[in-house]
Design a protein around this nucleic acid. Structure first.
Lengths: 202, 202
DNA sequence: ACCTGAACACCGTTCAAGT
DNA sequence: ACCTGAACACCGTTCAAGT
């Protein structure tokens, strides 16, 4: 047995929504107590899992990608979203880690080089992680393809037209909220503002 | 005994980081089983708590506030942040609720009236909740005043200048990341982009 | 309707003892 | 070092029985 194999099983269980030390031990063919040979406690396992997932994102898109700063940040953000949304159950843990592990440091370092103001880096991170968190919260079921999810949400979305007229009228757009297009549209606007020379000293 | 009193105690325990049915029962002078007279299960208690906290935010700032759309959204966002950060431990639950309870619907309805595109509403929500989530994740301890928190973070923040030169150089700014100024700066930029006529059909 | 007491089926973690 | 078996101190939830 080795730590990596434990993490493999732990990710599986987390995706299934039932990561317990006992289930994990059974999965890897050990007794619960034996897990403490590899990790000091359950939180350490979750932390290692978070770091492993973040490491799956393609940092190259940010660090040595082609194109403008905006294009590279967008490409990486989309890649990060895709990577993390393969494991929605892990997203709360990623937010909870406050984004200050080794991978997060590299992301921050790159963003500092691509944006004119340190505050812009943080704004991008807040938007990207906020979007992913909202999306993960909505994704209880594994994850059906995006068009299906939008259609289901549209069908389920019913509000009183009297009290929420605008919400009712915009129901189609709202059903599409959690989508790649929505994610990208907001990020485009944010980056436009952050990269505009005139806005630097707002 | 009544549901509201149960929620009062539940919020106290959640803030303390130990909301269990047993502790809650003890706190209100009941047996654990008796709690199920008031709420069907633990998740219902957390859900009710989330809704109560959201209801504490001043919706008037958004719905019948003064000034421009930008000013009203900013005022409400700052108020929401302040409200939620009084209970950092509840923030993950708020994100987990996918922001679709009754209060969230009212917020969404107002935003739709203040912004030119439904997608802009969602972008604002993603940024605001993302910022609050990152802030809450960092706030383990109750909450010391903001200047102290920044100073502590600055003192604790040490990275290798060789591998993370920009991060090292921007350490002061980074220590100030989680602050009202930072929150507002990013929101200002985002709103500027979302409200710019030329950006509407990007 | 509201509550108790007791149980059921779980948890994470520790630790002496073995190899 | 690695693992077992057993325990400790918890969980959320259910339910017969009482008022």
């Amino acid at each position: 047995m080795n730590p990596e194999a434990v993490l493999d099983a732990a990710l599986d269980l987390l995706d299934g929504g039932a990561l317990t030390m006992r289930a994990l031990a059974t999965r890897v063919g050990l007794t619960p107590g034996a897990l403490y040979t590899y990790f000091p406690d359950r939180t350490a396992i979750v932390a290692a899992l978070v770091e492993r997932l973040l490491a799956e994102a393609d940092l190259g898109l940010l660090e040595n990608g082609e194109g403008t700063a905006s294009a590279r940040i967008t490409a990486f953000s989309l890649n990060l979203r895709e990577t993390l949304m393969r494991h929605p159950a892990a997203v709360p843990a990623i937010l909870g880690a406050a984004f200050n592990g080794p991978v997060a440091l590299r992301v921050g370092e790159s963003l500092l080089g691509l944006l004119p103001d340190p505050r812009a880096s943080y704004a991008v991170i807040a938007y990207v992680l906020g979007s992913i968190a909202l999306e993960a919260a909505e994704t209880s079921a594994p994850l059906t393809p995006e068009p299906e999810r939008i259609a289901q949400r549209r069908a389920a979305f019913q509000v009183d037209p009297e009290t929420f007229p605008r919400t009712h009228a915009a129901a189609d757009a709202i059903a599409g909220y959690i989508s790649t297009d929505q994610f990208r549209w907001g990020l485009d606007h944010l980056l436009t503002a952050l990269l505009a020379d005139t806005a630097d000293r707002l």
